[in-house]
Design a protein around this nucleic acid. Structure first.
Lengths: 193, 193
DNA sequence: TGTTTGGTAGCACAGTCGTACTAGCAAGAG
DNA sequence: CTCTTGCTAGTACGACTGTGCTACCAAACA
């Protein structure tokens, strides 16, 4: 047996290189050579882990989704519905470098979807997962409401959150975040009432 | 003098070819050769009109912004604030093939911005223009409100509209649109109250 | 001590990229 | 008519693309 590497670790390392390149130079700059150089490995080594570019992109997208999922799942909950709702939804907004990068990469991957159809299921999965989270939040905030209006309320909440996220992304990272969080709080309070 | 072509018409024709390729094959497939083939001209002819790829993309983005602006500006207004607000905002949602294509192309161009910095000002201009439109709508709906809460209300409205637009884009084009328009109506009524 | 084998490194190939360049065409000006 | 000139068409170039393939290294098993 030759020396063995930690495949998972290697894969994550390469995926992070993909993210870096997407954020700094756009999705168009993501080529096997550029990614290999960014990760500090030879092209042949990269291709030993990801035989094709598609598999590289696919894994990068999947890893980002699972990272976001983990981050949201590990949010400590206090029991106060409004505070917990805000804590959960804040993870979707690009308020910190991590979540900001996630959103940038996600947007780039969505735009690349026509060229790499394998990315579409991942995008859809993200969408459904966040939809489910919003439904859970609405149920937590207003359990007495009937199911249909709750579904609508969840869709509306999700749309607002995604819109806020998009607009925060447009502003410079250093600009003021307060208004977005304030709006989220207002919407949460409105759903509860 | 040799035969003269309508430069503006030619430019628009080429820009439309760009949009088609973005929608069908992704922004990564937009090369001078592919665009020329899609438009039915030789590469040399395309480069006579757009010397560089950047200028081609830049013009395509600018034309799309001005198309959207014209479409919104030419909306017939009835005088009823709520109906007019809905009419204006509906143009931002991807409810028809035109506005859907616009949004798809816009998203792709935003994602390409790191690679083509010239696209950033256009993106910002779009953002500011729609912000101004939302502020105008809020003023139309609730003129008695003070300026600060009106600004917040406009930001909120814009975020909701963009979020709805994004989510409509994810669903298949044939799927039901009703819920998004319903939510828009609800938000408009809420602002007025 | 070989021998096997997971991993590394890199060359080769056919194709595409953006752009520079030139030769030719066809229509209006003189 | 000829001349001028906006436009078209196509070639050429160096750089880059994804992927196939081989040679090589070094560690663990026999």
């Amino acid at each position: 047996m030759p020396r063995r590497i930690d495949l998972d670790e290697r894969r994550e390392h390469l995926a992070q290189a993909v993210w870096t390149i997407i954020r700094e130079r756009g999705i168009g700059a993501v080529s096997v050579r550029v990614v290999a150089a960014e990760a500090g490995v030879a092209v042949g080594s990269l291709r030993h882990v990801f035989p094709t570019r598609t598999e590289l992109l696919q894994f990068s997208a999947e890893l980002m989704l699972s990272r976001a999922t983990d981050r949201i799942r590990s949010t400590p909950l206090s029991g106060d519905p409004e505070a917990d709702a805000l804590a959960l939804l804040s993870h979707v907004l690009p308020l910190e470098p991590d979540s900001r990068a996630e959103l940038e990469v996600n947007l780039a991957l969505i735009a690349e979807a026509p060229a790499v159809p394998e990315l579409v299921p991942i995008r859809d999965q993200t969408y459904q997962q966040l939809t489910a989270m919003c439904e859970g939040i609405v149920e937590m905030l207003a359990p007495e409401r009937d199911a249909m209006t709750r579904t609508d309320e969840a869709r509306r909440l999700y749309a607002l959150v995604d819109g806020l996220a998009l607009h925060l992304l447009m502003e410079t990272p250093a600009a003021d975040d307060g208004w977005a969080v304030r709006m989220l709080q207002g919407e949460i309070a409105r759903i509860r009432a």
